[in-house]
Design a protein around this nucleic acid. Structure first.
Lengths: 231, 231
DNA sequence: TGTACATCAGTGAACGCGCGTTCACTGATGTAC
DNA sequence: TGTACATCAGTGAACGCGCGTTCACTGATGTAC
C-alpha cells in the first residue's frame, strides 16, 4: 500500500467546463500501454494481481471516467494479454470489486491521516476528515465514482455491503466524540455529514456551472449545523 | 406533459438485495418491442420525437439501469428502425439531453404538486418537497441517476448547466420563506438540503445493506437542523 | 550430475454481441399547374 | 379533373469498433529420481 502510481492527484479539481459527453469508448491514446511486461518469476505470480489493481486505479485517476474501466483496457495498461486477467479474477465483476476495496482502503487512510494531523480535538478531526473527503472526491472523480457507484456492487461470494464500512465508522466515532454523545444522535449526524459530502461531490461534478457557494464556506456551515454550534 | 406511460412508479423502492452486477448489456427480454409502429401522417412527424423520449423514460423506469439507455434500445422500444432516431436527434447525446430535460420537467412538477398539496406553511412545503424528492429518487433509480449523472452532461448548442435549475430555485424559495430570510443563508440551507437528499438517494441505492437509519427519521432530523429548530 | 516431468505464468486467435453511425433507398401523401 | 413532382416519414443493410469470454497452446523453471 502507498506506492500505487495512479493515486497521485491532479492539481485542478474541476478543470474542464465542457465535460465529456458519452463518447464512443475507443482505445484512448493517453494510455500507458507499457508494452509486454516481463513475466514474473516462479512463485511470484501474485505480483500480476497487484499490478492489475494498480493499473485499474491509474486508469480511473487519469481518465476520470468509470466507463473506461474495462477488462481489456486494464490488460493493455498492464502490458499483458486480456486473458491473463482471468488467472487472478474469475470475472470482470471480481476485478472491479477488488479495485473498489483497494481504493476504499486508500481513501480511508487519507481520511485517517488528515484526522491524525488535525490532532486530538474531535471537532477539528471531523472538519479535517470532511475536508479530506471532498478534496479527494473532487480531485479523483473517476476513483470516487467507482467506489460509490451503484453499479457493480456485489458478487455472490463477497457481499459488497461490507466494503467501506470501516471508513464510515471512523468518521462516526469522531462525530460522536465531538458531540459528546455516541447514541443514535451521533449516528444521524454522521449520516447527514456523509450524505451531504457525497451529494456535494457528485453534484458539483455533474452540475459544474451551477452557482455553487464557496466550498469551504458550505462545508464549515454544514458542520456547524451538525455539531450544533451557531457562530 | 403528464401522460408519459414510462413515468408511473413501482411500488417497492428497494426491492432487490442482490443488485445487478455490470452484466453483459444484451438485449433484454422484458422490452416493449411494440413491433413496427405505424408511420405518422404527414405533418405529424414530430409525434415520433415525443414517442422516442417517452420510450427512453420507460426504459429507465423499468430497468433502473442508466446503461440500458442506448439508441438502439430506444428504437426497439418505439418499434422503429435505429436510423429513425436521427430524424429527430443529431446524436445520441442530443437524445439523452432531451430525455433529461423531459424527466427534470416532470420531476419538478412532482415536487411542485407535493408542495401545493402541503398548503401555505413554508415549513410544511419544504418537508413535502423533500419527501417527494427522495420518494421519487428511490422509486425511480434509473430515471434519477440519468437526470443527475455526471456523464452526458452537455452539448455545444444547449449547455447543460441550465437544466434542472428551476427545480432547485423553487425548493430554495420555500426554504427562504421557512427561514424568513432570502439571502445567502437560505441559499446555503437549500444547498445542504439538496446535497443531503441527493447523497441519501444515491448512497442508499449503492449501499443497500448499510444499517441506514429510518428514512423519515433521518429526513425530519435533517430538516429540523436546516430550518434551525430543535425539538 | 543428468534428465524427465509437472507446474507456473502466462499468450494468441477466435467467438458472438450490441453498439453508434453512414449510406442509399422507398413509398405514401400532399400540392402546383 | 388529371398528373407530375416535391416532400415527408421513414427503412434496411452494412461499416468498424471494443467488449467479455472461451479455447487450446507455449515456453521457462523448478523438482524428484
Amino acid at each position: 500500500m502507498g506506492q500505487n502510481p495512479g493515486m497521485q492527484v491532479s492539481t485542478d479539481p474541476i478543470a474542464d467546463d465542457q465535460p465529456a459527453d458519452r463518447r464512443p469508448t475507443g482505445r484512448r491514446s493517453g494510455e500507458e500501454s507499457a508494452g509486454r511486461r516481463p513475466r514474473a518469476r516462479r512463485g511470484e505470480g501474485d505480483r500480476l494481481r497487484a499490478e492489475i489493481v494498480a493499473a485499474a486505479s491509474a486508469i480511473l485517476a487519469e481518465t476520470g471516467e468509470p466507463a473506461e474501466l474495462s477488462l481489456r483496457a486494464v490488460a493493455r495498461a498492464v502490458g499483458v494479454a486480456a486473458t491473463s486477467i482471468y488467472i487472478h479474477f474469475s470475472d470482470l465483476g471480481e476485478l472491479i470489486l477488488a479495485v473498489k476495496e483497494d481504493m476504499l482502503a486508500r481513501f480511508g487512510e487519507v481520511l485517517d491521516t488528515a484526522a491524525a494531523v488535525a490532532g486530538d480535538d474531535p471537532q477539528q478531526r471531523v472538519r479535517a476528515r470532511a475536508h479530506a473527503y471532498y478534496d479527494f472526491g473532487l480531485r479523483n472523480p473517476g476513483v470516487y465514482q467507482v467506489m460509490f457507484s451503484s453499479q457493480m456492487v456485489s458478487t455472490p461470494n463477497r457481499p459488497a455491503y461490507y466494503i467501506g464500512r470501516p471508513v464510515f465508522e471512523r468518521v462516526r466515532d469522531d462525530v460522536a466524540a465531538a458531540l459528546g454523545e455516541s447514541g443514535p444522535a451521533a449516528e444521524l449526524a454522521a449520516v447527514h455529514l456523509w450524505t451531504a459530502l457525497h451529494g456535494t461531490i457528485t453534484l458539483r461534478l455533474s452540475r459544474r456551472n451551477f452557482p455553487w457557494p464557496d466550498l469551504d464556506t458550505q462545508l464549515e456551515d454544514l458542520i456547524d449545523r451538525l455539531l450544533n454550534q451557531r457562530r
